[in-house]
Simulated scan of single mutants.
Amino acid sequence: MGSSTIVGAERKKKTKGIVVLVVLGLLIIAAFIISMNTGFTKLSPLEVLRTLFGSGTPKQELILFEFRLPRIVIAVLIGAGLALSGCILQGVSRNALADPGILGINAGAGLMVMLFVSFFPTTTAAPIFLLPILALIGASFAAFLIYILSYKKGEGILPTRMLLTGIGIAAGISSAMIVLTLRLSPEKYQFVATWLAGSIWGSNWKFVWALLPFILVFVPLVLAKARVLNVLNLGDQTASGLGAPVERERMILLAAAAVLAGACVSVSGGIGFVGLIGPHLARRLVGPKHQFLLPASALVGSLLVLVADTLGRVILQPSEIPAGILVAILGAPYFLYLLSRTK
């Protein structure tokens, strides 16, 4: 009787998880459609539909295919990537406050973007495809520093030390970025200021193709590590006792988190708190098991960034509010709330 009750409960949780994922997917589709209709130049749903099937005017095709669609796709991709990165970091460190922005991984990627902007025109075609690589190097270096400084032999990664180390690294890198802005021309300084605010600056198809390989490779890799994250959440000693190669798996997962965060930051700018809010909201919806938590985090992150970017384009037309600012308006109070609840 007891075993059948457990099986029934597990089946109910699985059904709930599937329903939540389907609902989140439908909400993203709805937000996607609304975002295509939204902007300085209005396109009705019928005009959007006609344009998608090749019956729109040249102006409508230009607006939809060259301006809105690539930006919407990038918003979905970076939301998923940043939220997955945060979910990985929270699982590996067993720290509810872990996030690629708070821990300095985004700052490491941003430093490389700053160096890129300093030496290359932001509209040059060839370096666009180098940008995610450069951001990846910066994010990986920051993740390596966090790992080395927060690891203690015999105890693994200490959650509190990891958080404090990441905050310190983020502060140091941010200071270096401020110093670098002193050598920028006014045009490049304006670009950097917009980037730091979290504006999705890479809004054409070239940036989609530059980002897409990293998403297609590392998102399935992370989803395949769901059971490993479940085991790591039990603690290093328990995970080792169950036969898991703790250090190897931790390094693989941290590398994946750094790659996802770095690649996303290279085209999204300094959007923070997505990696914090996404996993927490997903955990409330589907529970702590990573088989559902990882995809739910990705969907929540995509929905959050897409909605923030869409609202940012319409609230103060013809001006825009960077998506990072709207996410921060939600994220900062939520971070303080989590901090107050953490022992």
Score class of each variant (00 low, 15 high):
G56F: 04
Q60K: 08
N233Q: 14
L97G: 10
R68H: 04
Q291T: 11
H290V: 07
T310V: 10
T165W: 00
G269D: 02
L163Y: 01
L84Y: 01
E249T: 09
A125I: 10
Y334K: 07
G8N: 08
L89G: 00
V265S: 11
G138Y: 08
G301L: 03
M36S: 14
G156W: 02
G202N: 09
A143L: 04
I148G: 02
I74S: 03
A193K: 15
T38L: 12
Y334F: 10
A258M: 01
G101P: 10
F129R: 15
G25A: 12
N37E: 15
I252V: 14
V300Y: 00
L158Y: 03
F144V: 08
G25M: 12
R11H: 11
G25P: 08
K152D: 07
V208P: 00
L254T: 09
A171E: 05
L115D: 05
T124I: 09
I325F: 09
T51G: 01
P245M: 14
L49Q: 12
A197V: 13
A125M: 08
L303E: 03
I148Y: 01
L182R: 14
M1D: 09
W209F: 12
K59Y: 06
L211T: 00
M1S: 11
I72V: 02
L149I: 04
L149G: 03
T194R: 15
L232Y: 07
E10K: 11
V222P: 00
L211A: 03
F218Q: 01
E249Y: 15
L311M: 07
K343P: 05
V222Q: 01
G172Q: 03
G287W: 02
A332T: 13
R284N: 09
L211C: 03
S174G: 15
A135H: 13
L77H: 02
I325A: 07
W201H: 13
S175W: 06
A296G: 03
L182G: 13
A197I: 10
L276A: 00
K206A: 11
I128Y: 07
S35V: 15
L276E: 01
W201I: 09
V23S: 12
A126H: 11
G272K: 06
L254V: 09
V314I: 07
P58G: 03
K16M: 12
T51H: 02
I74P: 03
L223Y: 02
A255M: 11
S55M: 05
L326V: 13
G138E: 10
G91Y: 06
G202I: 05
G262V: 00
P213R: 03
I105M: 02
L303M: 04
I6Q: 07
N230L: 07
T5G: 15
F273S: 06
L299K: 03
F141Q: 06
I137C: 14
A143G: 03
L299T: 04
A96D: 15
F191R: 15
